[in-house]
């Protein structure tokens, strides 16, 4: 093993420089470090989303949680057929449609304006959401009225496994519990939060359209890299409907504690959602020029694991 005399340069870049060599080949330690990074990335790609556990965790946010699947049956099909990962399976599509119809008839019977308290109350029902498991949306139609807005919800949060279920399991709640308080005072009506298994970014278009939401915000596991297997991406689409293109979305990527930190990501997402709602657009026309996040401006964080602590709605 021959060490490299320039290893002082390593602090200048995250790239794998000055690795040393055995002859001209990679030394054992550097070789095994690479193998470990790749192994973690591979494990992340194939780690199945524990949708029930995630639903239980996300229920603390105060939004009902629905559970859907894409048309990709399993991971190998998901990897080969991105088109299937962008569409709901038949059962989920039908269930979301029933839910939306039920919500619409509910709101037509009531003139009550959007009342976040109702969404808080409905959160109690989400415990059963988690237990519905593979049956998807069955039994959730009683959760109507929480949008209580005759013209539909302003936004739907869609949490999809994407290429790293680890990313959403680790970072979806920490991000959402920082975003919702930042914008709630502006009177947002949210659709139920929808967890999607084997989902790609564009599945938010169909989910958003099915629920009549004016904006879809998709939280999704990014393709794992060697440096991190759990980067979370967020894609915002105004006017979600099947056929939207990537140019019509805005993206915030690499959200994780050692990448784009939660507070900074929440600040940018809240700004982006606010601007998107105000200007009624997303994509290229909506530049991400959020003002810098001042340390003192960090908004309060929802108490983790304390569903009763929904201070932001009042």
């Amino acid at each position: 093993m021959t060490a490299d005399a320039w290893d002082a340069l390593r602090r200048l870049t995250p790239a794998r420089i000055a690795l040393g060599r055995a002859g001209a080949s990679l030394p054992t330690a550097a070789h095994l470090q690479f193998q470990m990074a790749h192994a973690r990335a591979r494990d992340a790609v194939h780690h199945p989303l524990n949708a029930d556990a995630l639903a239980a965790e996300l229920s603390t946010l105060g939004l009902p949680v629905l559970h859907a699947r894409s048309a990709a049956a399993d991971r190998p099909e998901y990897l080969r057929r991105p088109d299937l990962g962008r569409r709901l399976d038949d059962a989920s599509r039908a269930a979301l449609g029933r839910f939306a119809a039920s919500a619409a008839s509910e709101s037509s019977e009531s003139t009550a304006p959007s009342d976040p308290a109702e969404s808080t109350a409905s959160a109690e029902s989400t415990g059963s959401t988690g237990s519905t498991g593979s049956t998807g949306l069955t039994g959730l139609t009683e959760l109507t009225g929480f949008t209580a807005s005759a013209d539909g919800p302003d936004a739907v949060f869609v949490v999809a496994d994407g290429l790293s279920a680890l990313a959403v399991e680790r970072h979806a709640r920490p991000l959402l519990e920082r975003v919702i308080p930042r914008i709630q005072a502006d009177g947002w009506a949210f659709a139920p939060l929808v967890i999607v298994e084997q989902g790609r970014v564009a599945i938010g278009d169909e989910v958003g359209a099915a629920l009549g939401a004016r904006m879809a915000v998709v939280l999704i596991g990014e393709r794992p890299g060697l440096s991190a297997p759990d980067g979370l991406g967020v894609y915002l689409t105004f006017g979600p409907r099947p056929g939207r293109t990537d140019a019509e979305r805005n993206c915030i990527s690499n959200i994780r504690p050692d990448g784009l930190a939660y507070d900074e990501a929440a600040h940018r997402l809240a700004w982006m959602m606010t601007e998107s709602r105000r200007r009624r657009l997303s994509g290229i026309a909506l530049k991400d020029d959020a003002p810098p996040l001042a340390a003192s401006a960090a908004a309060p964080v929802l108490g983790a694991g304390k569903p009763s602590n929904v201070a932001y709605d009042g």
Partner: peptide, 10 residues
Amino acid sequence: VPGADDVMLG
């Protein structure tokens, strides 16, 4: 590429 790992393109 250093160590076969492109830290920009991933």
